[in-house]
Computed example of a mutant assay.
Amino acid sequence: MTDRVPPDGVRIIACIGAGVIGGGWVAYFLANGFRVRAWDPAPDAESRLRALVEAAWPALTELGLAPGASPDDLTVTADLADAVSGADYVQESAPEQLDLKRRLLADIDAVTPEHVVIGSSTSGYGMTEMAVDAVSGHRLVVAHPFNPPYLIPLVEVVGGKRTAADVVTWTAAFLRHVGKSVIVMDQEVPGFIANRLQEALWREALHMVANGEATPAQIDASITDGPGLRWAFHGPMLTFHLAGGPGGMAHMLDHFGPSLLSPWTRLDAPELTPELRDAVVAGTEEEAAGRTIADLVRERDRRLVDMLRVLGKVPGGI
């Protein structure tokens, strides 16, 4: 659309829904120097929202505020149309109820100028199923953040069947411009990427607790003091790439592939076909981006030391 401002030209953002996620978005956008107009139907929405922004502001200040950034740039309005009036971008963050999402997105669409992109913070629904009642479904897109949105950088962006490609591109560019780490998904997947992975871990944890195999504290410690430290910078795929030694992921899959059939988890393992093996190897090599195993080991060890220091877990308290 010719009237759409460029990603770096956004000045006013409307945040529809001001709970934990919506309020987190408000705090993040304010810290980045935007003027924010918020709407939420709850009678105490404004007091809760301003309290959330106040609580988040010290951390945001420590990370660094944009010049002139201020909580005073927040306007809370009782009228939805007033909230989106003059906005360059709209972020919806209503509760995860499909009927509610459908109605609200249709209402937002009806009062928002045609050129303005409307993003949704949904954590599980696809835009295809949410945008069924919206007339201008082409400008509706999922922009799924992680709690708290003012600190966690990841946002997963994906359109629905009616979403225009340029809307996805614009949304990703805008969110990257404001400092977010953006994954543009190739297709809609229920739960997106990160939530699918979190759900698998959560499901297995519940199995272990239910069977008396581990306590919640043991489960948390197994991640925070174990693989979670590595996942903070390499993620599970590069972690297994290093587990293969000099042979990398190829050796890892060829050597340990049969163990995928071991009954360790309650999840069905996929068949390790040659196609799956080759896709995982190729994808890992692409992510490594020319870094050798030795390079990645040095990077991992350096960042682990940094992480341990930050967490106060350096042996001897050094």
Rank of each mutant, 00 (worst) to 15 (best):
M1L: 12
T2N: 13
P6S: 12
P6Q: 04
R11T: 04
I12W: 06
I12H: 03
G17N: 05
G19C: 14
G19E: 09
G23H: 07
W25Q: 12
Y28K: 11
L30I: 07
G33L: 05
R37Y: 13
R37D: 13
D40P: 09
P43C: 14
A45G: 10
R48S: 12
R48M: 10
R50V: 15
R50Y: 09
L52T: 12
E54N: 05
W57G: 08
A59Y: 07
A59K: 14
L60Q: 15
T61E: 03
L63D: 10
G68D: 02
S70N: 00
D72R: 03
L74T: 00
T75L: 07
T77Q: 01
D79I: 06
D79K: 05
L80C: 03
A83R: 02
V84F: 00
A87L: 03
Y89W: 09
V90H: 02
S93Y: 11
P95L: 12
P95N: 07
L98W: 09
L98Q: 05
R102G: 13
A106M: 08
I108R: 13
V111C: 09
H115F: 15
H115S: 13
G119E: 05
S121P: 01
G124H: 01
Y125T: 01
M127A: 03
V132E: 03
D133E: 06
A134P: 00
H138A: 00
V142N: 00
A143R: 01
P145C: 06
P149R: 03
P153V: 06
G159L: 07
A165V: 04
W170T: 04
K180I: 13
K180V: 14
K180F: 09
M185L: 09
M185S: 08
Q187P: 09
P190W: 05
A194Y: 02
Q198C: 03
A200L: 10
A200D: 01
W202M: 08
A210N: 12
E213A: 13
P216L: 02
I223Q: 14
P227M: 14
P227S: 12
L229G: 15
G235W: 03
G235T: 03
F240G: 02
P246K: 03
M249Q: 02
M249R: 01
L253W: 00
D254G: 02
D254T: 07
F256H: 10
G257A: 02
G257F: 06
S259E: 07
L260F: 09
S262T: 15
T265S: 13
A269H: 04
E271L: 10
L272N: 00
T273S: 14
E275L: 09
E275F: 06
R277N: 12
D278I: 11
A279C: 12
V281Q: 10
V281S: 04
G283I: 15
T284G: 14
E286L: 14
A289S: 06
G290A: 15
R291T: 10
I293K: 09
A294V: 02
L296I: 11
L296V: 05
L296W: 08
E299P: 04
D301G: 10
R302M: 11
R303Q: 15
R303G: 11
L304F: 14
D306T: 11
D306C: 11
L308G: 08
L308P: 06
G317Q: 02
I318C: 12
